[in-house]
Amino acid sequence: MRLATSQVVLFILAAGAAAASRSVWDGVYSSEQSSRGQSAYNSKCARCHGEALLGGESSPALVDRDFLEKWNGKSVGALVELTRRTMPSDGPGKLSRRQCTDIIAYLLGANGFPAGKSDLVSDAAVLDEIFIQPSPKK
């Protein structure tokens, strides 16, 4: 019995550790959320970053090599927080955390990371534990 309890505890700890080390390859957002993010992106971000997310005059690309090199190893939480704090660049701080999370869900989809069943939540503690990496394996 004591053994079983510790096994359960171990299992819970392992599950927690797995959750703590999720990556963008683990289906961390839903396709509905990505669509919402796309609408928000088109009205709030596309003017500078381009409809195809390839960047603009003074705005970096948000897809492919340029983007992934920059964000490799960093957390989705950092990306959401940077967006919320600094965008749109002429009047930052006006997008809600929820809106920013939707927009990032759209960016993840555009970069080829798979959709899952549920939304990416906007809770910073959760987002900080999801990491951007170039391939599914560690």
Binding site: H49, G50, L54, G55, G56, E57, S58, S59, P60, A61, D66, E69, K70, L82, R85, T86, M87, S89, P92
Partner: peptide
């Protein structure tokens, strides 16, 4: 254009050389 803004890999290369990527607090 690479990076959209045409700064090439220069931005990340310069970052390796100690270039700060974002200014503190005020925005990109």
């Amino acid at each position: 254009a690479s990076m959209g803004g045409g700064r090439a890999g220069g931005r990340s290369a310069d970052f390796r050389g100690g270039m700060p990527r974002f200014s503190g607090g005020e925005g990109f």
